[in-house]
């Protein structure tokens, strides 16, 4: 097999963003489960050659402030952080960080550049935002078509207002009973979703360019 690798800049990347709520209410078992879930997700993706070649991972956490703890990084180079929970729920700030990264870190398709695949964003939160989030939510939802991302929002427990998540994305999931096992199952599902997207990236026809997500695990409902 000959090598036809014409320079490093022309591989289409599949940007993956994890937006994780690490506010005080996630303390204890939930944040432990999130840490384990992120590690599990990473290890699953590292078993998937299409994800290894195309997926780039970013992790944005939000509590009293939002931080991009892992900038958009080639999968094999990612260092998984250890997350600790405390503080409030600055969802708006996290959406601002996401929006900025989608603008600056994702390469659009153009006649002179091989653009990235449509980014996948997995947002996970267990409470109501404590900052001014509405403007950032609208900015995310109103992104121009060429720069749009697929956002999947998961609300964990009864403290989440579905309408908040619906203002960000049409794809909203709810986990009613937040247990470590459910969180683990969720991250397994995220891994399956990414694997499916990374191998089926040339699959869709215009007008049906949605990511074909696998059915969520039991205990997690799709909110229509």
């Amino acid at each position: 097999m000959m090598d036809m690798n014409f320079g490093g800049g022309d591989v289409r990347r599949l940007p993956i963003y994890l937006l994780l709520d690490i506010s005080g209410s996630m303390s204890g078992a939930p944040i432990q489960a999130v840490n384990q879930g992120v590690s599990l997700l990473y290890n699953e993706l590292m078993n998937d050659p299409s994800a290894i070649e195309t997926a780039y991972l970013a992790i944005i956490t939000f509590a009293s402030e939002a931080k991009m703890v892992v900038p958009l990084t080639e999968l094999t180079q990612v260092q998984i952080p250890y997350l600790q929970a405390s503080g409030s729920t600055s969802l708006g700030a996290a959406l601002g960080v996401l929006n900025h990264s989608l603008d600056h870190d994702v390469r659009p398709n153009s006649p002179t550049q091989k653009g990235d695949y449509k980014p996948l964003v997995f947002l996970m939160t267990d409470g109501m935002p404590t900052d001014h989030w509405e403007q950032a939510a609208d900015a995310i939802k109103q992104r121009p078509k060429q720069k749009v991302a697929t956002i999947i929002a998961l609300g964990c427990g009864g403290g989440v207002d579905v309408n908040t998540l619906k203002r960000i994305t049409e794809v909203v999931l709810m986990m009613d009973n937040v247990t470590p096992d459910q969180i683990t199952q969720y991250f397994k599902w995220v891994s399956q979703s990414i694997s499916k997207a990374s191998v089926a990236i040339n699959a869709a026809a215009v007008g049906e360019a949605k990511v074909d997500l696998p059915p969520p695990p039991s205990g997690i409902q799709v909110v229509l």
Partner: peptide
């Protein structure tokens, strides 16, 4: 090419 990379007619 569609609005997203990877989508087509």
């Amino acid at each position: 090419t569609g609005e997203a990379v990877g989508s087509t007619y």
